[in-house]
Design a protein around this nucleic acid. Structure first.
Length: 572
DNA sequence: CTGGGGAGGGGGCCC
DNA sequence: GGGGCCCCCTCCCCA
């Protein structure tokens, strides 16, 4: 007794579920595209995936081996057994790319299909050069890692050109590569790579040339085991994963949480952007501990989050390069910078202004290496389009921060920027002085009212040459100095936003991926940060440690006291 | 409708 | 690299 078409029907169902994101338990990140899938399916189709999904819910694929468009076809193939090529995808080049990807992902059937197709098309598969630069080294590296029982290099290490250079052929794995695959080894890539890590002199700070995909965004473990957080593994098993070196890993089980509703990030516009509200609701309604005290409210909150994300990543963002224009505001301190940057970015997007066409990669940042004056390839985009500034510069909306010159287009600005050397990458403050604005004075007053200033009177021998702030130790000073750089060293690989600190970027990535490792034991609500949870717990405890000295009002959060104090101090 | 409070979320930045 | 705190933005609720 056998049910005809059983397998086919099953696969069909699974593919439909994938399209809806239903029960998907793994996210594959390819460049700026996210693909949801089922671990079981991936594991069944490739031993490579099998080893990856064992411990990881988030997999980053090497973008030199596979691009979103190709991976979409690969995923379709996995779920359907068919190679669905549209006209533009039936080209030889596409099959070459598919073959590269299939080999990389160890999808042998797909690789065989591609080879067959390529041979049929013209004898020699993959003639000339591969569709992606130098994939053999990557293949070799990749397979090398597969074969080793211990992770190669530090956790989350991302392969760099120099890695690829290391001649460590693994014969056992080499065997796995067909002749077709082997031939592509034309490219022993030189250390400088092809894509702009022009400074061979990258410091160990190492952000340069090191894509930040290899980040473990699930570092946090829940404050306590059990309850709503039980799904979170407190440890990262990436060490155990043979591929940990090439993928970013996460054990955060929040994939089954409502927060996993992913914003549309797929540059291909495939079903990965499909936010199925129903599915979202289904997952959001899953009981995750005791019901929230303010159920409706918190439910609304939960529903907000994908919406907010969606608004944060507008459709035009999908067309942006991964590392796009940096918009740098005047650095006089903290918050103004933030507000400025966000607004500016959005404005630029809405106005359709093109600041994304620059050379893009913010490599060669020499992060942590301040010494080099080697100029090099600073693709900083000093696009600077603040409303208030426009009249001053007329039509020249693209302003070089260091020298203040305005340019009518980003191209011209970038050409100009090249004339600055690295030393000038620091933003010159006007006259080197800081004019304390009224807002700041007010803020200072307010913070004096709520607590001691963060800058005490203890010895701070390390002084910033740009803004004269002083610090206790040189590392902190260095960290601070990055805030003056025109090019922020740490780009988000999903939205391209740039950050001055890696930690901030990592935290930001968590928000993209919906990772909320901190769960409230009382109501099951989850947070991206420990601090938020601490704050939140006051809701349950009723603790209101922040008291207004003027009216005696008490608040659970300091920010609300501050905002309350504004009410007292504002003229109205 | 409006103002104030509560609270979630994101980024900057110092330690 | 992570923790913690500060700031801002925003939304929702309620009087």
């Amino acid at each position: 007794m056998e049910l005809p078409n059983h397998a086919k029907q099953l696969l069909l169902q699974l593919n439909q579920q994938r399209a809806k994101g239903f029960l998907c338990d793994v996210i594959i990140v390819v460049e700026n595209a996210l693909f949801r899938a089922h671990k079981n399916i991936l594991a069944a189709s490739s031993i490579y995936f099998k080893s990856l999904v064992l411990h990881d819910n988030l997999i980053n694929l090497d973008t030199e081996m596979v691009n979103p468009s190709v991976f979409r076809q690969v995923l379709d193939f996995i779920y359907t057994g068919k190679l669905l090529s549209s006209l533009d995808q039936s080209s030889e080049q596409n099959f070459s790319a598919l073959l590269t990807a299939a080999s990389y992902l160890q999808l042998h059937d797909l690789a065989a299909l591609c080879r067959k197709k390529l041979k049929r098309n013209g004898g020699k598969p993959l003639p000339g050069k591969p569709s992606t630069p130098g994939p053999l080294s990557r293949l070799r590296l990749n397979n090398q890692r597969l074969s080793t029982s211990t992770p190669a290099g530090p956790k989350n290490h991302y392969p760099t050109p120099s890695d690829a250079d290391q001649p460590q052929p693994d014969e056992g794995l080499r065997d796995k590569l067909s002749d077709d695959e082997m031939f592509v080894g034309s490219s022993a890539r030189n250390g400088n790579g092809g894509n702009g890590s022009s400074n061979g002199n990258l410091s160990s700070g190492g952000s340069a040339g090191e894509p930040d995909l290899g980040l473990d965004l699930s570092k946090k473990s829940p404050p306590s085991a059990g309850t709503a957080t039980d799904a979170l593994s407190p440890h990262s098993n990436s060490q155990e994963s043979p591929q940990s070196a090439s993928v970013s890993t996460t054990n955060s089980a929040s994939l089954d949480d409502s927060s996993t509703t992913l914003p549309g990030l797929d540059a291909c516009g495939s079903e990965t952007t499909d936010l199925n509200p129903k599915a979202s609701e289904e997952t959001q309604n899953q009981p995750d501990g005791p019901p929230p005290q303010k159920k409706s409210r918190q439910g609304a909150r939960k529903n907000e989050w994908p919406k907010k994300e969606a608004s944060g990543l507008k459709s035009e963002d999908h067309d942006r390069p991964l590392v796009n224009g940096v918009i740098v505001g005047p650095k006089d301190g903290r918050s103004s910078d933030q507000a400025f940057q966000c607004k500016d970015e959005e404005d630029a997007g809405e106005n359709g202004q093109d600041h994304t066409d620059e050379s893009g990669q913010s490599d060669g940042e020499s992060a942590g290496g301040r010494g080099g004056t080697g100029g090099g390839n600073h693709s900083a985009n000093y696009v600077y389009r603040q409303e208030g500034f426009e009249p001053a510069f007329g039509d020249n909306l693209y302003v070089c921060i260091p020298c203040g010159k305005g340019f009518p287009s980003s191209e011209q600005l970038n050409a100009h920027v090249e004339t600055h050397n690295e030393d000038e990458l620091y933003i010159k403050e006007e006259g080197g002085t800081f004019v304390k604005e009224e807002d700041e004075e007010e803020a200072e007053d307010l913070s004096a009212a709520v607590g001691p200033s963060s800058f005490g009177s203890e010895a701070r021998p390390f002084k910033c040459t740009v803004c004269s702030k002083s610090y206790k130790d040189p590392a902190t000073l260095r960290q601070h100095e990055k805030s003056h750089w025109l090019t922020r060293p740490f780009p988000c690989n999903i939205c391209g936003k740039m950050f001055t600190q890696r930690g901030t970027m990592t935290r930001h990535m968590r928000s993209h991926l919906g990772l909320k490792p901190f769960a409230c034991e009382e109501c099951g609500m989850r947070f991206t940060r420990q601090y938020r949870l601490t704050e939140h717990m006051r809701v349950h405890s009723g603790e209101k440690p922040y008291e207004c000295q003027l009216c005696g009002g008490k608040f659970t959060q300091q920010r609300n006291l501050i905002s309350h104090l504004r009410m007292h101090t504002s003229p109205s």
